[in-house]
Nucleic acid binder design. Structure first.
Lengths: 242, 242
DNA sequence: TGCTGTGAACCGGTTCACAGCG
DNA sequence: CGCTGTGAACCGGTTCACAGCA
């Protein structure tokens, strides 16, 4: 139970998680030629409360104009800078199955400071293939990259069984940020940051809420029992009609 | 057992989000033939505090044995039931690019109550293709499914531009749970549940933390050693001026 | 006037510490 | 005893309401 003395985070995690959303909306507005937005307008576009938006932005500094709103360009730039998108982030993807291919060819990848510098997969069938201008290499080549672009972010898109090994290797060569799509909990050193994205988890959360709605719809509000038996088809579209 | 009328207690969202994780760990333990776990062991496996785990599980009921721990099978079943995985969830995927293919062939999909009943894509090149035993159809076929399995969960894996239209159609035919992989904010009626998974957002959050670490490393505040040069281009000197 | 920026109240969720029970 | 289950303290984050300024 170390007290972590040096960890002074200026911007709350919850705010950081929303900044990309704000940035996306601002980019769209900029494309449409909009020059200025109020917190009310922008928050509506993103689906949060205006007070939330203002408080979030206040963590970056005072970039609004009272009585008017925010200048779209300025705000977009300040958010980009706060997120670190004004610098270059070399990314490597490990595991070039369907998911890896999808990630590598995802356009949003390139648009904002992220640049794919390496793709790895040990499947011989993929040998020599190039995706988004980058050749797929066997994973052991990771170690022979000494001269090349250092990897800032590693994306794991392998089966769960390989994930920990891949992760260890990435950490070994200095990667300190990992995005994990494999359904596995990775153990890493203290200073490595792992985020996990899991389809299965998301589906299960949706299923939970769907079940709740089905149960609520079947029973008049206030009923608090007899849910054990109802394992019928919660999928009936009419069940929850308003 | 006196047919415990599993009291409908509200399960906090934060707990629901962790249940799939617990379930995965329990499944692995079951495979290994483990019969019983303590909160200490299970919580270590998923990376949460033991008190957290116990409180989470307490929302489902009292399925532990004091002085001993939890029976793996029983607990796994109770979590499955709480999440609604003991019933069948028909899923449809719209957009069969790389991502759609990855999702459709994802094994974790089938394992726990989720069943793909339809795949949609308007690309003529995909006409007639079958993934995981299901044929890809043009999206307009969605409306002619009247007799077929009703869709409980819709997965949107289209480009952002098509997402809202697809979403509207899904809602129209009665889908009330949507998993959105497109980088777009969907507007839906009150009673529709949307979860969004966005690669770009995750990368940006990682970038933020990486930047924080880099900055902390540059300014000796008694923090950890400097980074292993994995971020070549140093941060803008005037960035994040306090 | 109309908006931003923010102290203060509020709320959900986490952690602690121990009571309760096999 | 040992471990679960839980009231109570605590904490981060959200919302409210208004002060402050163009």
């Amino acid at each position: 139970m170390s007290a972590d003395p040096a960890v002074r985070r200026e911007i709350p995690d919850a705010t950081v998680a929303r900044l990309p959303e704000y940035l996306r909306s601002l980019s769209r507005l900029a494309e449409q030629g909009v020059l200025s937005v109020s917190s009310e307008e922008l928050s509506a576009a993103v689906g949060v409360r205006s007070a939330q938006l203002r408080k979030d932005l206040s963590h970056l500094g005072s970039y609004g104009v009272r009585g008017v709103g925010y200048e779209v360009d300025t705000l977009a730039f300040e958010i980009s800078r706060a997120l670190g998108l004004t610098q270059d982030w070399p990314v490597a993807i490990v595991g070039m199955g369907n998911l890896g291919h999808a990630l590598a060819s995802y356009s949003g990848f390139v648009t904002k400071g992220f640049r794919i510098v390496a793709l790895f997969d040990d499947d011989p069938a993929l040998r020599g293939e190039t995706v988004a201008g980058v050749a797929i290499q066997p994973f052991r080549e990771l170690r022979s990259r000494h001269g090349a672009d250092p990897i800032a972010i590693g994306v794991i898109a392998t089966p769960a069984a390989a994930a920990q090994t891949v992760c260890d290797e990435l950490v070994e060569v200095g990667v300190r940020s990992i995005l994990n799509f494999a359904p596995a909990v990775l153990s890493v050193p203290e200073d490595v940051d792992v985020r996990r994205v899991d389809l299965s988890t998301e589906l299960q959360i949706l299923a939970f809420h769907a079940q709740q709605k089905a149960l609520a719809g079947l029973q008049p509000v206030g009923a608090a029992h007899a849910l054990d038996g109802c394992v019928a088809h919660a999928a009936d579209p009419e069940a929850v009609a308003t």
